[in-house]
Amino acid sequence: MEKLNSIIFYNIDKAIRSYRNYAQRQLKANGFTITIDQWLIIKAILENPGITQNEIGDLVFKDNASVTRIIELLVKSEYIIRNQNPDDRRKTNLEVTESGKEIIQKVQNLVEENRKLALEGVSKEELEIMNNALLKISKNCLNPKK
Rank of each mutant, 00 (worst) to 15 (best):
D87G: 12
N83G: 08
Q108M: 13
S99Y: 12
I51H: 03
V122D: 01
I103S: 00
I56P: 00
Q105N: 10
G100H: 02
R25Q: 14
E112L: 11
L59S: 08
E55H: 08
Y79W: 14
E102F: 10
Y22S: 02
N21V: 09
L119Y: 05
E78A: 06
E55Y: 08
P86W: 09
V122H: 02
G31E: 05
L119I: 03
K62V: 07
N64R: 15
Y19L: 03
Q53N: 10
V107C: 00
I45N: 01
I12T: 02
S99Q: 12
Y79C: 01
L117Y: 12
Q84K: 15
L27Q: 02
V96Y: 02
I104T: 09
E72C: 07
E113W: 09
I81C: 06
E47W: 07
N109W: 11
K62L: 15
K106T: 05
T92P: 03
I45F: 02
F32T: 01
R20C: 09
Q24M: 04
S99I: 10
E78S: 08
P49G: 00
S123G: 03
S123N: 02
L117A: 12
T68H: 13
L73P: 08
L117H: 11
A29V: 04
P86M: 08
L94M: 06
A65V: 15
D88A: 05
L27G: 00
Q26C: 05
E102D: 13
L59M: 14
N11M: 06
L73I: 09
R20E: 12
L119Q: 04
G100C: 02
F61L: 14
N93K: 11
I16P: 00
K106I: 05
A29T: 07
G121K: 08
Q84H: 10
V60D: 01
A15D: 05
F9E: 07
S18Q: 11
K101L: 12
A29N: 11
S66I: 13
Q26F: 04
E55S: 10
F9I: 06
N11R: 10
P86F: 11
D58I: 10
I56H: 00
S77E: 15
V67K: 00
N48V: 03
L46G: 06
W39K: 08
V96P: 00
S66M: 14
L46S: 11
D58E: 14
N11G: 01
R20G: 04
V122L: 07
D88N: 13
S66K: 15
V96N: 00
Y79Q: 02
L117T: 13
E98Q: 14
L40E: 14
N85G: 01
L59Y: 12
T52G: 07
N83L: 15
K76N: 09
I104V: 13
K62C: 09
E47C: 04
N48Y: 07
I104Q: 10
D63W: 14
S18D: 12
K14C: 01
L117M: 12
I51R: 03
Y19S: 01
E102L: 12
T97V: 03
F9R: 07
N114E: 07
K106P: 01
I71D: 00
L117C: 09
I16C: 03
E78G: 03
G57Y: 08
I81D: 05
Q108R: 15
K101R: 15
R115K: 13
N64C: 08
N30K: 07
N114H: 06
A15M: 06
Q108N: 13
N83P: 04
L27F: 08
I81A: 05
L110N: 00
R90I: 04
K28T: 15
